[in-house]
Design a protein around this nucleic acid. Sequence first.
DNA 1: CTCGGAATTAGGAATGGTTATTGATTACTC
DNA 2: GAGTAATCAATAACCATTCCTAATTCCGAG
Lengths: 140, 140
Amino acid sequence: MMDGEIRDKFRKSGYTLTSQRRAVLEALEASSGHPSAEDVYLIVKRKNPRVALGTVYQALSVLEEIGVIGSKHWNESPTRYDLNVEPHLDIRCGHCGEVAEIPGVSLDGLENQIKENTSYEVTSATLVVEGVCPRCRRER
Amino acid sequence: MMDGEIRDKFRKSGYTLTSQRRAVLEALEASSGHPSAEDVYLIVKRKNPRVALGTVYQALSVLEEIGVIGSKHWNESPTRYDLNVEPHLDIRCGHCGEVAEIPGVSLDGLENQIKENTSYEVTSATLVVEGVCPRCRRER
DNA sequence: CTCGGAATTAGGAATGGTTATTGATTACTC
DNA sequence: GAGTAATCAATAACCATTCCTAATTCCGAG
């Protein structure tokens, strides 16, 4: 995934692809699902203990700005980051916090419907879904 | 709106309808749109300067819990509260922060589609829409 | 009405995720 | 290689929200 597309986006944006930003990206690839900034920080620190949490936040915000990663925010929990930048659905378990993707839901037309019904200029639309994961349901 | 329905919900829940909670509800009615906890606090304080911000937060969470009000949270801004508890769409202006309702968008079927495609037990689904309001667009 | 226990409140301190600041380090440009 | 701009590490500051505690209010039983 560390391919030319990413290099391209960096070049176009004017930001530089530094080792820290690459490390953040690699951490995102390494982590199973939808890590928080803190999660990413811990992974990056295993290889480079000198990185600061602030650097991770800054890197994540740059990566999101240039469209390499996406983020989602659930109430009462830190923002989660994601390599999947296509419109898609994620659900978060209210008990254990685990985030999973929901496939097969069509969001086509929804954004258009929104745009047709508001005088605002729509810049983003995120569907925030919460629930209880199967494991937590069993353990209740 | 301070009708029996609300009294009912309080009775059923076991919470008591105190003067502070009534004041919070009235502030929500008085405020034009989708106030934050701080907004509500300032309105309530005009009549009763002794209320504490924490009390407003507690009242809002009780009111939401028993289904009298709803809330929505946008990234990088405080949670907004709303007397409209029906599923509906709100959009927030990223410049001035104003929140407005988007009418005419059908959300029917979306929740069902979600439920059919995940093994999670869905408890809530909120569509968070952001954009630029007409006024801010003009002033740019 | 009055007492006692439970719920609620005011006030303020604490929390936690995130952002801002600062001086030092590193990376491009010529 | 010098000069300039970007980035970094470390840490302080921020801000919405929650937590804590003592004081107050509410409510039912007598």
